[in-house]
Design a protein around this nucleic acid. Structure first.
Lengths: 211, 211
DNA sequence: CCCGGGTCTGGACGAAACGTCCAGGCTGGA
DNA sequence: TCCAGCCTGGACGTTTCGTCCAGACCCGGG
């Protein structure tokens, strides 16, 4: 039963909500909450079963950083059906001194992530990751450094020249990777180069930094 | 000057080439090579200045894995202007016993990667990387761990017992400090303990975690 | 007082990793 | 074609690692 006298805040904010909902298409839900009563004022593109008047279950915001200007997120939300959402919330106040409303935009990441994965796979020149089992350690940083250099210079490993290797080794050294046990042989392999070469390059590096 | 009698292989394969070129749109180049003379037979959607009759510069294929069924790649190619391509090649033979042709499809990855990056960024719920940002020197981390333990337990280094040392070593190991070259002697010194002791404690630790 | 279990110590030692060196091989340019 | 520069694989001496052990030390119990 829709109220005959809609909340004035609804009149104020609903154009924004409708606009955002339209702009972001079918994968975004926009919800306007009443912060005082913790109920839903309005909802556009609903992805869940909530309707105006329902409780907001907005307690979540308390746990988040106040984030300065009343904007929270983007943070991650999970739906019972497994969908993952990216959400932002904003506290809306008007000059009429009315209790604030809270605007929430929930974007379903699923389709976007699928599309991104699809495009990435399409563009991939090779299998994305051999991934030697989760190794959250220095080898990853090594790969980050090397991969970053390749991307930054648009030059694949096979086209590396002496200067490229020197640059990468400089970075790896600065990152402390070379101080790790057994790192040098691993780096050599990663650079498609012999252990000897890595040591030679390293002495060259040391020598050049002395000047 | 187009030859009056086009190569019969061109008649055989050009429909395929045209179809692929159309399907993949403006970002894909299709080239048909003559493997015997190493020249270009035909080219659709050219991204480079090559034309029929030009040398193929197909030597690249020799460096690649024969890949079983005559299909090479996908592998990465670089254009002088910096564009990155994903390429596949296939050796085409017909039953007429003619010398084989080589079909190359070069897909410009740039637009796809841009799109993927855009989508991925759109979907990202939060900054992808907290990135420890200039990871401090491992000795500092060692001192942090030890100092933190001392403060947390209000027990100065001189009062450390076996359990304290074990606990600290557990933390240091988890922090990866012990994977650094020459770290163990330093840790021993910091703990006011001999190198031997550290090693025995470490084996005890390893042994206890096996149960 | 002495004893014994538990712990740390310095030193020794084989094994591994480290870092250097050299005699080739490959490649791209003069 | 030769040359110069770079990379390679292997060999080799050195350093570091990790283990082992005999003895010193501490401390509570008999």
């Amino acid at each position: 039963m829709p109220a005959e006298t809609p909340d004035p805040r609804l009149r104020t904010w609903s154009p924004v909500c409708r606009a955002v909902a339209l702009l972001l298409g079918p994968y975004a839900e926009v919800v306007l909450h009443d912060a005082a009563t913790d109920t839903v004022l309005g909802i556009w593109n609903p992805m869940t079963a909530r309707a105006p008047g329902d409780p907001s279950l907005l307690g979540e915001l308390d746990e988040l950083e106040p984030a300065a200007d009343g904007v929270y997120g983007p943070y991650e939300k999970l739906l019972p059906d497994g969908r993952r959402l990216s959400s932002v919330s904003a506290v809306l106040t008007d000059d009429a001194g009315r209790p604030p409303a809270v605007l929430c935009v929930n974007l379903d990441r699923g389709p976007l992530e699928q599309a991104a994965a699809l495009l990435a796979g399409f563009a991939a020149p090779t299998a994305p990751r051999p991934e030697p089992l989760f190794e959250r350690d220095w080898t990853e940083r090594m790969n980050d450094v090397i991969g970053g250099y390749v991307r930054a210079h648009g030059r694949p490993l096979e086209r590396f020249g002496r200067e490229d290797r020197l640059a990468v080794l400089r970075e790896l050294d600065a990152a402390g990777v070379l101080a790790v046990r057994r790192a040098v042989p691993a780096v050599a392999t990663a650079l498609r180069v012999s252990r000897s070469t890595v040591y030679t390059l390293l002495t060259d590096l040391k020598h050049e930094s002395e000047t």
